[in-house]
Design a protein around this nucleic acid. Structure first.
Length: 205
DNA sequence: GCCACGATAGTG
DNA sequence: ACTATCGTGGCG
């Protein structure tokens, strides 16, 4: 298997939404215990700075999320609901908050396609925990991101999952995913549709 | 010091 | 629709 070069810091040092869109289709490389595991990112969400009511950055640079305000290209991991880990890539220039939540990936070395579907299962499947928080994603070490030359997938977009409390920010289409991809997360294939509308008409907004 | 509440996932 | 399970952050 040819070695893949990590994406440079400049890739992450851009507006969060741009980085989020460009991350779909990229390859996640996880090295642990001498083994290398690869997975293609198929679904992400953009979380912006303090003005984004759904973002962990909304309360400013507290101890937990200070990393979101720091330099780009580092890993932010947190524990949610006391049991699931979620991985995020820090974006924007140093001093500006932003991160992209990685929600689902397609295993490239075989294995169950559902294993990495959903942010919690993705971390579980790749063995990523809060201990990995702060990892430099631009170094070819335990965890990094690469471009394997695959053509960028057609993107769908939708509101972010699980942020209904965020007022008008809940409605913004900041979730991006590879259209028609089986590895996109969500009950009933939520998001395999072309973005904005769900099968059920209306129900809010 | 408390206490409410999640950027979830599996089951009923 | 319900809940397991715990760190974070708001508030006093």
């Amino acid at each position: 298997m040819a070695r893949l070069a990590p994406l440079p810091r400049a890739f992450f040092a851009r507006p969060t939404i741009e980085v989020a869109r460009d991350l779909v289709g990229k390859v996640l490389v996880r090295r642990v215990g001498g083994r290398e595991r690869r997975a293609r990112i198929v679904e992400v969400e953009a979380y912006l700075g303090p003005r984004d009511a759904a973002s962990h950055a909304r309360h400013g640079p507290t101890k937990r999320v200070a990393i979101m305000f720091g330099p780009p290209g580092f890993l932010y991991v947190y524990l949610i609901y006391g049991m699931h880990h979620c991985m995020n890539f820090v974006t924007e220039t140093d001093g500006v908050a932003g991160a992209v939540l990685i929600r689902a990936a397609e295993p490239l070395d075989g294995g169950d396609a559902r294993e990495l579907r959903g942010p919690g299962k993705l971390c579980l499947g790749l063995g990523v925990t809060v201990a990995d928080k702060g990892t430099d994603l631009t170094r070819a070490a335990a965890l990094y991101v690469a471009d394997d030359g695959a053509p960028p997938p057609r993107l769908g977009r939708s509101p972010r999952i699980g942020v209904d409390y965020a007022g008008r920010w809940a409605a913004r289409h900041l979730r991006f995913f590879a259209r028609d991809h089986a590895s996109v997360s969500g009950p009933r294939g939520r998001g395999t549709l072309s973005g904005a509308r769900s099968r059920r008409p209306s129900r809010r907004t």
